[in-house]
Design a binder for these strands. Structure first.
Lengths: 147, 147
DNA sequence: CAAAATTAATTACCGTGGTAATATTTACAA
DNA sequence: TTGTAAATATTACCACGGTAATTAATTTTG
């Protein structure tokens, strides 16, 4: 459905329309992703953290995880709290620099990821109606928008 | 900055990249908008509700407001609670259908909007680095993405 | 070397958003 | 008509996200 119909409004200009459309579409994607992840008892940001940890191959500082995330807020700590409660990751104090906390994924965490790997993840990067070329064009426009 | 640099990662394909980029960009825009609105002691969704109410010219049901918003959740009620606390809008029970609650903007609400009108709103639909044509193309891609 | 600035992580307090359940009222239908 | 379904708004409970303040440790610098 075209965005103007969705919110039953008109727009001042194409930029205004694009900005509203952007937020609406991001919201839709977020909802699709979260509802998909729900059956694994994970939220999307939690899943992201686990993937980052697996990708790191080794222990990694909280800061390093944060730098790979879309949101750079203290949320990372809180999300990790929940993952640790679930036994999917763990913290280790760094001895050489005692400000730093290292984190790593546990066996249970790897298993959880494996389970998702084996599932159909097409909903996670759902942009199904775009071709690869269009997806590339979209990314370029977004990069340019942010400046 | 290009999205791959922002989150220091590579992507499986262009679709994956576009989806991550989309959420990241929407997030950036939201932050810009909220920080702009902060000086008026309003959040962006609160501001949206006030604009919808002003645009309605008359009392309007909560449902009608909801249908013009990006998020269709019970949040509308909660946002309205806050606006009413601030004296910017009010509720009136509909007498013909007692399930319905009408809402309308107050004088104070109109004044608040007027104050914002007179300010430089360029941050609100910040997509400054896009041309109108590009903004149009972006909207089209987003519409197609959602299907 | 000691005080100040910086860095890493966390916490507190605020905000929004989502699903599900609820109360109330109305419409429908056997 | 009467019981059931549907619609409207709200509430409860959960989640994430942001800014600012805090704690602890390290680095810088005067």
């Amino acid at each position: 459905m075209e965005i103007g119909q969705v919110i039953q409004s008109k727009f001042r200009n194409s930029k205004h329309k694009a900005v509203v459309n952007l937020r609406y579409t991001a919201n839709c994607l977020g909802n699709i992703q979260n509802s998909y992840m729900a059956k694994f008892d994970l939220s999307m940001p939690q899943f992201n953290i686990l993937r980052i940890l697996r990708g790191a191959q080794d222990v990694i500082s909280v800061n390093a995880v944060k730098s790979r995330m879309v949101e750079k807020s203290p949320n990372t700590t809180r999300l990790m709290d929940k993952l640790i409660d679930k036994g999917l990751m763990e913290r280790v104090r760094c001895e050489s620099d005692r400000r730093v906390v290292y984190v790593s994924i546990t066996e249970a965490g790897l298993n959880a990821l494996k389970q998702i790997d084996e599932d159909d993840q097409s909903k996670l990067d759902f942009a199904g109606n775009l071709t690869e070329t269009e997806a590339e064009a979209l990314s370029d426009l977004l990069d340019k928008l942010r400046g």
